[in-house]
Every structure is written in structure tokens, then in C-alpha cells.
Design a protein around this nucleic acid. Structure first.
Lengths: 260, 260
DNA sequence: CGCTAATTTGATTTTCGTCAATGAACGTGG
DNA sequence: CCACGTTCATTGACGAAAATCAAATTAGCG
């Protein structure tokens, strides 16, 4: 439990059920042919060490990725060197949305933990769209839910104070790492610096430090190095107004059986 | 030119070339059958007066919309009554992303000007996805570009000061209204209150007032009631680091001719 | 063990928010 | 057509949250 980063390599053999398949299968029952199609996106495996950059902002690329293990973040930099972390990517996520709309990436993709990605070309995405419309619809739905997640972050940054922003961010990350420890508590490794946290929610590292201390003083949080323990998830969630939107998206507009 | 709001009603007859068709046709050459399919989304016309609410946050709905004329915004409200305006919608935009992923809308959709929308059920979207994969791909690309636009707003709110936020927002709106008046200058009607502007960029109405005054003092902006004139677009753009990302999205991963 | 990067803490400044009052614009009804 | 009320914009005084600047301390890593 101390090092989540390396939770998957040895399991990888078992997990060859495909990261995408497991995530999307949770939303909708997939046909064999759809599963096959998803596995086609996961033929080229790449490994990245924690902290390494997978793709630079404005870099020209044809490659898209599925996260197989570990996590990453997408960020952008302003002329004055300020950085905004736009979102995080977890197992089963596609990193298409910042690069599919243009020839270049709109964000820098950085590995937070050691991670494994599957790389595939844009053409492969076309294959899915042309032959598996239900998957295309699901991709669209997932993109929509990601847009809502970013809207939540925007609301947090634009309209709430430091404690709420940090609290929400930690709950959000916890929720996506899905590490539950005991009844209401939750422990996980957070390999992010204060600078990273600040860049995600629009605060300076100095103020993030003070804010985390406040959360500790209020007995909502415990820290031991990179290990974070949210003492009472429900309490913190209600305090900062966190609502977990993941885990479900509507597929009722897609037919049940496989078409064609 | 004084009243953009009413620019389209009389043109509407001519514009029955379909708002979506004109927008998407700009990105990619569409086949006749694709054009037809898009027009199928525009059979039920609805009109909304400026300020009226099209759809409430958390409201259950099956309806999706295409903007035919006018503009709108999507917003969300926090328990403490604070509001965040998440994005604006202009002619040719789809309002699907906040409602397709769940049975309820994740945002309140409000008409900024008088506007005309085309309403269609989710099933109609499936029709497109199943029969016109290139359009599905294009929808996906558009959703991705919208995500990048929201990422830009997040960066603006999280990492820049009041002048930059407001300046960027005005340039953004101007750019989407695409009303150019003269060489480098630009005049348009802005039917938003200071509260609205503040809710879009995370500032109070009081501070928005002061910020607009500063922009005027610096001869970057002129105001006359609801009429805004950006004195020198290029100058303001470089001052606040605005980059116009609209007008183009990549379609090279989609085949040229119609498939099937 | 020592170097570097990250964190913590304090002092101070800045930006933006809050509160409150005034004024202008607009629409409505008498 | 004017009086009135409502909403919105402006302005000023003040306060609070977060940024900045600057050490000092700690943790991580080779």
C-alpha cells in the first residue's frame, strides 16, 4: 500500500483484459467485437518514469494514448512561466481531447507516477468510429463527462476559497485512484509537490502549504510524507461540497445490442 | 449594427442552410447525405427571449439543442448562491456536452440575447453516430476543441489577474460573435451585466467595474452602454496573451469521401 | 553524508472582496 | 408623458484572502 505506483506491473499480465475495456465495460455491456476493437488500441506499450514528459504543449504528434497503469496530468504554461494543471489522467482514460482537434497538443502531458501507456495513431480512432458506433457514442459521452469534470474544477477555482479548492481536489484524486481504507477514512500516496497542487487549483505553493496545515488542524486530513489520509471522507466532502460524478454515464441513447 | 440580437430573424429564411451545416462545413467538406442528416436535427424550432432559461441545472431532459441564432451561456450554482458561468454558446454550437453524459443537465442554460434553438432528442444523435461516422468524428473533435476552450478559461481564472481575465473574455466573445468593424477595431453589443462577466471569470461585479475602467483608462476599450469597442484588438490580445483557437479543427483522421 | 529540492514559517504587500451609498438607465403603470 | 420602482453601474472606505519575499528547516537521493 505504500507504493501504489508499482501496483500494476506484475498484475499487468492479468490486466491484459484491457484498461479501456474495463472502464468502458463498466458503463455499458460490450460485445466481443467491440472488445476486440478496443484491444487494437492497446498494442504498443510505452513506459514512462514518474516526472517524465510524454508529450509537450505545441508538439506535433499523431499519437494518442490509453492509460494502462499509473497516473498523469495535462498542463499548460503562460508566457510568464505560470503553469495551470488542467486535469489528471487515470487508468482507462484516453488522452485524446487535447490533441485530436489540432495537429499539435494543447497541453503538456506529464507522468505523475511511473506509468504505462498504450500508444495508437489517430487512424485507429477512425477505425473505432467507423466500425463501432456504440463505442464512438461512448467516447463522446466520456468526453462530455470530462468536460463536466473540468467545469467543476473551473467552478472551484473561480468561486471558492483555498480550503475548498484543495479539499475538493484531494477528494477528486482519491475518488479516481479508488483507494478505500476502512469505513470512512481513506489513505493514498500523493506524488505531487505543493507547486503541483497549487498549479491545479490556482494557488501558490506557499498558500497550499498553509491550507493543508489548516485541514490538518481541523482534523480533516493527516499527512506523512507523500501519504495522505482523509480522516473522514463524508465530512470533508460535505464541508467543501464535493460531489462524485464519476462511475456512471448515460448510455440509454445507445442501443443495447451490437449494430450492423 | 446597434442591435445584433435581432440580426437573424429576417435572415432566417435564407439561413435555412442549417446552422450546424455551415459551422461543420467550414471544418470539412460534407456529403449531401451528411447535410441531410444534420438538417434532421433542426426540425423543431424554439425561441427564447433574452434572459430566459432554456434548461435548469439538474433538470431531467432528453432534449439537446443546436443554436440557430443568438447566444447563450451555461452556468452552475454553488450552495452559497455563487454562480460560475462555464461557457458561452454561439450559432452552430451544440449544447450536448453538459447533458448527454447523464439523465440530467449539469448546467443551467440561459439565453443571453433573444435566440432561436433547434431541439432534438438523444435518439437523433444516435442516428448520426450510427449512420454518419465522419460526423460522429467531427462531433468528437468539436467536443475536444470545446474542452480546450474551457481549459483556456480555467488557466485564465486560475493563473492571471483581473485585467487579463476580462480582456481575454471580451476578445473571446468578440471572436465568436465574429462581428468585425473596421481594420483593427471591433465593436459589438454585450448584453451581459457586470455580475455575468464576473461570474464567467471569477471576479465580483465591483471588481469587474473597476477593471473595465482600467481598460478604458489604458485606451484599450471604449464603452457606450452595452456597446463595447475594443480599440486595438491586436494590442489587447498581445497584452493579455489571447490566442484565437477557433476557426479550425483537424479532420485529417477522417477520410475524405463518404464511407459506406 | 552531503547536496538539492521541497516544505514550512514569518513578515509584508497586493489584489480582490465586502459593505454601503449614490446615481443612471430602464420599464411600467397611472 | 411623467412618476416611481427596480435593476444595474459606479465609487469609496475598509477588510480579508492570497501573493510575494525571504529565510530556515526538512526530506529525498545519489
Amino acid at each position: 500500500m505504500t507504493d501504489r505506483t508499482f501496483a500494476s506491473p506484475d498484475l499487468a499480465g492479468d490486466n491484459r483484459r484491457s484498461a479501456l475495456e474495463r472502464k468502458l465495460g463498466h458503463y455499458m455491456t460490450l460485445t466481443y467485437s467491440e472488445r476486440d476493437a478496443l484491444r487494437w488500441l492497446e498494442r504498443r506499450e510505452r513506459r514512462y518514469a514518474a516526472g517524465s514528459v510524454v508529450l509537450h504543449e505545441n508538439e506535433e504528434t499523431d499519437a494518442l494514448h490509453v492509460v494502462a497503469s499509473g497516473w498523469l496530468h495535462g498542463s499548460t504554461r503562460l508566457p510568464d512561466e505560470a503553469r495551470q494543471i488542467l486535469r489528471f489522467y487515470f487508468v482507462g482514460d484516453l488522452t485524446t481531447t487535447f490533441s485530436i482537434a489540432w495537429g499539435v497538443s494543447a497541453a503538456t502531458l506529464t507522468a505523475v507516477s511511473d506509468c504505462t501507456l498504450y500508444e495508437f495513431p489517430r487512424d485507429a480512432l477512425w477505425r473505432i468510429f467507423s466500425e463501432h458506433p456504440r463505442l464512438a457514442g461512448l467516447f463522446y459521452g466520456v468526453a462530455a463527462s470530462e468536460q463536466v469534470a473540468m467545469a467543476d474544477r473551473l467552478t472551484s477555482v473561480g468561486r471558492t476559497d483555498a480550503i475548498t479548492r484543495i479539499g475538493k481536489l484531494l477528494l477528486d484524486i482519491r475518488s479516481q485512484l479508488r483507494v478505500v481504507d476502512g469505513e470512512s477514512g481513506s489513505t493514498f500516496e500523493l506524488p505531487l509537490t505543493l507547486q503541483d497542487l497549487g498549479d491545479a487549483v490556482g494557488l501558490t505553493k506557499t498558500h497550499v502549504s498553509r491550507t493543508l496545515k489548516k485541514l490538518e488542524d481541523q482534523r480533516l486530513l493527516e499527512r506523512d510524507g507523500r501519504i495522505i489520509r482523509i480522516v473522514d471522507v463524508a465530512e470533508l466532502a460535505s464541508r467543501v461540497g464535493f460531489e462524485d460524478r464519476y462511475g456512471h454515464i448515460a448510455t440509454d441513447w445507445l442501443p443495447d445490442a451490437a449494430p450492423r
